[in-house]
């Protein structure tokens, strides 16, 4: 059985205790809600996108340390980035979580930085849904904001 130290890395706990970009954005920012039906966690992602760039992002809602810190790290990574880069990052992240999606090839050269710490989640399959909750919600937000 893998030990919880593989799961609860310091950087993860840091983002859990002190989440970055927590809050909400007023319209016309796009708000998307995601739920983890397994555990009742919910998350809202607010996206301010203009000229193909994520100009601002915030998140709110409740969840476990993994879903909260994963979302917090995600917001740091995508803020100010072009939407196409963000989509490539999402693919890269889901690939690390051993999930594929049909949206395109994974660019293995993309640096995940702190997000790499979430790699240990794969050893705890039940928690993969927690780690990807924010990311899937982000994808929905990107899709809906592009009409």
């Amino acid at each position: 059985m893998p030990g919880v130290e593989d799961l609860y890395r310091e950087i993860i706990l840091d983002h859990y205790r002190t989440p970055r970009n927590r809050g909400e954005l007023p319209p016309p920012a796009v708000c998307t809600e995601g739920n983890n039906p397994l555990c009742g966690d919910d998350i809202r992602i607010f996206l301010d996108i203009a000229d193909g760039v994520v100009r601002d992002v915030k998140f709110s809602g409740q969840g476990c340390s993994i879903s909260q810190s994963s979302t917090s790290m995600m917001t740091v990574a995508i803020k100010g980035k072009p939407v196409e880069e963000v989509r490539a990052l999402v693919r890269r992240f889901k690939h690390m979580m051993t999930l594929s999606d049909d949206e395109g090839a994974v660019d293995e050269s993309i640096k995940l930085g702190d997000i790499e710490a979430l790699g240990g989640v794969v050893k705890f399959p039940v928690r993969i849904k927690c780690a990807t909750l924010g990311w899937n919600t982000l994808l929905e937000g990107l899709n809906s904001s592009q009409g």
């Binding site: 059985m1 030990g3 919880v4 799961l7 609860y8 397994l38 555990c39 009742g40 966690d41 969840g63 476990c64 340390s65 993994i66 705890f124 928690r127 927690c130």
Partner: peptide, 25 residues
């Protein structure tokens, strides 16, 4: 401590508890 995290840590000593909404949202 979030129930999910709690049950994960309890699992280290094989203490099996359920975490979640228990199908009663």
């Amino acid at each position: 401590i979030h129930p999910h995290d709690l049950s994960q840590i309890l699992d280290q000593t094989n203490v099996c508890v359920r975490a979640g909404h228990h199908c009663a949202k």
